[in-house]
């Protein structure tokens, strides 16, 4: 990805990787400083913020018994649902309109759009994942939920969701450089997709026709997989990771093409 590979034929792949790592590291540090500053708890907000959200939603859902009167573990249901929403929603939100404010950084040849995206995605992913992990441990410790039945399934589902957030985010992030309409439409779209994303219901509880329609949304498969790993013995999970991977791959390719287009027309300030 680094440009030195392109105009300096002697730059080896290994050296390119070093440069890439250095640049993303520098961007990470800068992002932490500009976003959280050096006051109060600083970068701890990175995972405290999603934790507060998730805690609030878990409490409300727990009190209102938002599930369908079944014997589902409500804390695990809310935690998996809302944490999943945070991944696929926060990643694109952080990338939409992220090129413009970072233009002055791309004055440096090794800093590319993809590096800026990578740094923001990493921060977002680490923040939400840490929040998810810490809350799982706390909830399990106080007996609100049972530890996951199959950790591997949880991790796979989570990685698939993160991939979905990454590809959608990179695509929208690069597209937003072309048109400001992306920013205008992303917010209502994210808001409207939330109730459809599988966070607040189980596919199994839906009428079949409606379920088939909902299963067109890739993130639904990820949430179902995470929940299968958590409390799979309590319900029948419906998901197809192959379908989700195809969607993710499709958006990844679109995203890379759009990033390439944006890079070519970039005019750093």
């Amino acid at each position: 990805m680094s440009d030195e590979r392109q105009d300096e034929p002697r730059t080896s792949f290994l050296r390119s990787c070093t440069i890439q790592r250095r640049v993303i590291g520098a961007l990470l540090m800068r992002e932490v400083i500009t976003r959280y500053g050096r006051h109060n708890i600083g970068f701890l907000w990175l995972f405290i913020e999603p934790m507060i959200f998730t805690l609030g939603v878990t409490t409300i859902w727990g009190l209102t018994k938002a599930t369908h009167g079944s014997d589902l573990p409500i804390a695990a249901f809310a935690l998996t649902g809302y944490s999943s929403v945070l991944v696929w929603r926060n990643m694109p939100s952080r990338l939409v309109d992220s090129i413009e404010p970072n233009l002055s950084l791309m004055y440096h040849r090794n800093v590319r759009i993809i590096d800026i995206f990578a740094a923001r995605l990493l921060l977002e992913g680490v923040g939400v994942a840490t929040s998810f992990l810490v809350l799982t441990i706390i909830f399990a410790a106080v007996g609100l939920l049972q530890p996951p039945e199959d950790v591997l399934k949880v991790v796979i589902g989570w990685v698939m969701l993160a991939w979905w957030g990454t590809s959608l985010g990179m695509f929208l992030g690069a597209l937003s450089h072309r048109s400001e309409l992306v920013d205008k439409f992303w917010h209502p779209a994210a808001y409207l997709l939330f109730p459809l994303s599988g966070a607040g219901f189980l596919i199994d509880a839906l009428p079949t026709k409606f379920a088939n329609f909902i299963l067109l949304l890739p993130m639904v498969h990820g949430v179902e997989c995470v929940r299968d790993g958590f409390f799979g013995s309590h319900f029948v999970a419906h998901y197809d990771l192959g379908y989700m991977a195809m969607c993710n791959l499709f958006f990844t390719v679109l995203a890379l093409a759009e990033i390439r287009h944006a890079s070519r027309n970039l005019v750093p300030a």
Binding site: V23, G25, A26, M29, N110, V111
Partner: peptide, 11 residues
């Protein structure tokens, strides 16, 4: 901070 950023980028 600008100085640190550039040092990190260029090693």
């Amino acid at each position: 901070d600008n100085l640190r950023f550039i040092c990190r980028v260029y090693g």
